[in-house]
């Protein structure tokens, strides 16, 4: 079987839109997505020698793109550490939970999300648009963990390594971002009266 020879001049025509769509699904803006595609193809060009023709060209380019996504969030999340609070009253969680008992603050307890029509909300485009807008309101660090964990589905160990987090910090961040996200969805989707 003949090994594949990479053909950089054909990359854009063959894979350009697919790479771009994938990038768009991982970052917030079209500019950032274009930059990822450009970085990916330039890195691939530099690394032509490492392409052995074992995987398809397409697979190889997507591996590079996924690495670029992780790099993107590594840069975005760069912050010395997550301040783990000293006093419960000062913790960001105090917004959601009573510092004395740990019980939900009044009005913060999760509401019932049952879809009135019985249909599955999660697959609807409008729901996904609301989710994306809630996602974009997360802090840079929370947003980075969100994409790597829930879109890229990296393991906790991989994310801790990429973002230089301890496991304890990682869980605190996942918890906080889920609290923010579910509250945002509750307010903007499940709580909103008539949807049309």
């Amino acid at each position: 079987m003949a090994l594949l020879v990479p053909e950089p001049a054909q990359w854009l025509a063959r894979y350009g839109d697919d790479l771009y769509r994938f990038a768009l699904s991982r970052v917030a803006s079209a500019e950032e997505a274009q930059e990822l595609v450009q970085d990916t193809l330039c890195s691939a060009l530099d690394a032509l020698a490492s392409f052995r023709g074992e995987a398809s060209e397409r697979t190889w380019l997507f591996v590079i793109l996924r690495r670029k996504v992780v790099d993107f969030y590594r840069r975005q999340a760069r912050s010395p550490f997550v301040p783990l609070p000293v006093l419960p009253e000062q913790a960001p969680e105090a917004e959601f939970f009573r510092p004395d008992t740990g019980h939900w603050q009044p009005g913060q307890g999760p509401a019932d999300w049952a879809a009135p029509s019985g249909e599955d909300d999660l697959e609807q485009q409008e729901f996904q648009a609301v989710l994306r807008s809630c996602q974009q309101r997360l802090s840079p660090q929370h947003g980075a963990v969100f994409v790597l964990r829930f879109a890229e589905e990296l393991s906790a160990e991989e994310i801790c390594a990429a973002l230089q987090l301890t496991a304890a910090n990682y869980w605190v961040i996942v918890h906080r971002l889920k609290l923010h996200l579910r509250r945002c969805l509750e307010k903007n989707w499940f709580g909103s009266t008539p949807r049309s």
Binding site: S25, A30, Q34, P110, W113, L122, F150, R182
Partner: peptide
């Protein structure tokens, strides 16, 4: 919360995989 949390993770995955017609 225990029901919603995995549902949210699933929604995030679906949203990331949503088909797109964007072009470079």
């Amino acid at each position: 919360y225990a029901v919603q949390s995995p549902a949210l993770a699933r929604a995030a995955r679906l949203t990331a995989q949503a088909p797109s017609t964007a072009r470079l």
